[in-house]
Write a protein that binds this DNA or RNA. Structure first.
Length: 515
RNA sequence: GGUCCGUUCGUCUAGUCAGGUCAGGACGCCAGGUUUUCAUCCUGGUAACAGGGGUUCGAAUCCCCUACGGACUACCA
């Protein structure tokens, strides 16, 4: 009898430390987190490091730091402990061994001594017999070297001699497994198409299949939310729960994130070559010292990044598409998760980030701005930083655009855009600018408001068009036809700097551009 | 090859489970407007139910087939 004393939601994010997380992994973590928060449940970080050969230095720290940047937090895990530890599978070997003994004792699993060569021979001979899908299953296990085909005595002898062995699951022969998935509904598979999966490897480590079932059970995981690549092994996992006599948790298999150019799921190796990062934050490969950019380094705000990946595969069914973390937690629903894979769209990502930059208040933005200025060798007051940020933020798609849109407040233009000059720098332009210069020089009250009045009066007085005056002035100050409000710029830059830039432009813009 | 999963504008998607508004939104793109430039912003437009059979008065929606795509098929997770 299974009595649930509580229906506490407990979910886990269980990466293997084989490198940085890519955005698909972050999304899986995010959905787990949203689900846990919504149900007042617990979010657990478990490290699946049962393959010692693939361990990558620094990957664990990367995972924790990157998720922290995303504001995805854990209640239990390798970094903060909890009542269900240890949370690193490599530290749970004895637990797996105890459980594997249980399966062997009940006849659900068996020792196998076959060497890689022998396995290869088995596969080849099956193929020769016309078997399209050769596998270690009920049809061949009696012919193999294992504790089902050998006598107990022989098995003991082999073990005593230190012969390497694995433990395999004894898959039932002809049974329909009906597995349930929250995203996809019922999935039926005949166990005859399944094989006797290895549960314990020669090195004494469990495989994913064993470790994941044992840990999820022991850690009281209520919902397993993971990538679609696990769907084919769901029937096996159901059989394992049954073999242990445990009730399985609920499952939800998330659609894959696809490569934008066409084929296959996004992989870590896609690196930077796609034109957008695949990692949340920068990753430097410890062996090759190769650097991969992250969303953080590319100027994305974490709020935007999270929103972008959340919408890749989920949608609340309303027309809302910008969500704070709190709003997402409220609106999230596993049943509204998409079945088909999604492709990342860099253009829409840009739009999201622009939106979040607009949402950010000038105070916070000014802090980031001051950091960027420092990188470019400049500094200014917080007050002025706020003022500039207010002026230019609507033009910024990424954090670094704050600099691209405002460098001219700190550096005077040394070059002038040819195209703009050809179009806007007329024969009479120098003369007009000289007159404007004298006018500006005489202005006492150098505020945007007053400058506005003065220049407008000047333009009307001379019966000139705005474009005839303002664009050339802008060229003097910025070097091209770009940038925020001219009058505001002039006030910030100050009279001396304005006059200097006009003089420099007049002296350097070539006469041959005339006409 | 086998097993499983999937398929609505170029992209992300609503609508499917309880068949019944010109298939809705967003990004992009195009056009127009605002603006002293560029960008933003505003308005409008463009564009999709993979194909074929059924069931039904009626199908994007239910059933079957086909095509296409994907995942898995390791002593990797």
């Amino acid at each position: 009898m299974f009595i649930m004393t509580h229906n506490q939601v407990r979910v886990r994010f269980a990466p293997s430390p084989t490198g940085p997380l890519h955005i698909g992994g972050v999304r899986t973590a995010l959905y787990n987190f949203l689900f846990a928060c919504q149900h007042n449940g617990s979010m657990i970080l478990r490290i699946e490091d049962t393959d010692q050969n693939r361990f990558v230095e620094g990957a664990e720290d990367y995972i924790i730091d990157a998720l922290k940047w995303c504001k995805i937090e854990f209640d239990e895990g390798i970094h903060q402990g909890g009542n269900y530890g240890p949370y690193r599978q490599s530290e749970r070997k004895d637990i797996y061994h105890r459980h594997i003994q249980q399966l062997i004792a009940s006849g659900k699993a068996y020792y196998a001594f076959d060497t890689p060569d022998e396995l290869e021979i088995m596969r080849e001979s099956l193929k020769a017999r016309g078997e399209t899908n050769p596998k270690y299953d009920y049809q061949v296990r009696a012919e193999m070297k294992n504790s089902l085909s050998l006598s107990g005595e022989e098995v003991e002898k082999l073990k005593a001699a230190g012969t390497p062995y694995v433990v395999r699951f004894k898959m039932s022969e002809n049974e329909i497994v009906e597995a349930d998935d929250i995203v996809r509904g019922k999935i039926k598979v005949n166990t005859a198409t399944l094989d006797d999966k290895i549960l314990l490897k020669t090195d004494g480590m469990p495989t994913y299949h064993l470790a994941n079932i044992v840990d999820d059970y022991l850690m009281k995981i209520s919902h397993v939310i993971r990538g679609e690549e696990w769907l084919p092994s769901l029937p096996l996992h159901y059989m394992l729960y049954e073999a242990f006599g445990w009730e399985p948790p609920k499952f939800a298999h998330l659609p894959l994130l696809l490569k934008p150019e066409g084929k296959g799921k996004l992989s870590k190796r896609d690196g930077d070559r796609l034109g957008f990062p695949v990692f949340p934050t920068q990753w430097i490969d410890p062996k090759t010292v190769e650097e991969f950019n992250g969303y953080r380094e590319d100027g994305y705000l974490p709020e935007a990044f999270i929103n972008i990946i959340a919408m890749l595969g989920w949608n609340p069914g309303t027309e809302q598409e910008t969500f704070s973390m709190q709003e997402m937690i409220k609106a999230f629903n596993l049943e509204k998760v998409q079945k088909a894979g999604a492709r990342f769209d860099p253009e829409k990502a840009k739009w999201f980030n622009h939106y979040y930059i607009q949402q950010k208040n000038n105070d916070e933005l000014a802090d980031s701005y001051l950091t960027i200025l420092k990188k470019h060798g400049h500094t200014t007051s917080k007050q002025l930083a706020k003022r500039i940020v207010e002026l230019i933020k609507e033009r910024a798609n990424f954090i670094h655009d704050l600099w691209n849109q405002s460098w001219f407040f700190f550096e005077s233009p040394k070059e002038f855009d040819d195209k703009t000059i050809k179009k806007k720098w007329k024969q009479d332009t120098p003369e007009i600018l000289k007159e404007l210069r004298s006018l500006l020089e005489a202005v006492e009250d150098f505020t945007s408001e007053n400058l506005q009045n003065q220049t407008h009066a000047f333009i009307e007085d001379k019966k000139l068009g705005f474009g005839k005056v303002m664009v050339p002035l802008r060229i003097c100050l910025v070097g091209k036809a770009a940038g925020p409000d001219l009058m505001e710029m002039m006030e910030i830059l100050g009279k001396d700097e304005i006059l200097k830039r006009i003089d420099f432009a007049l002296n350097n813009i070539q006469k041959e551009h005339n006409n």
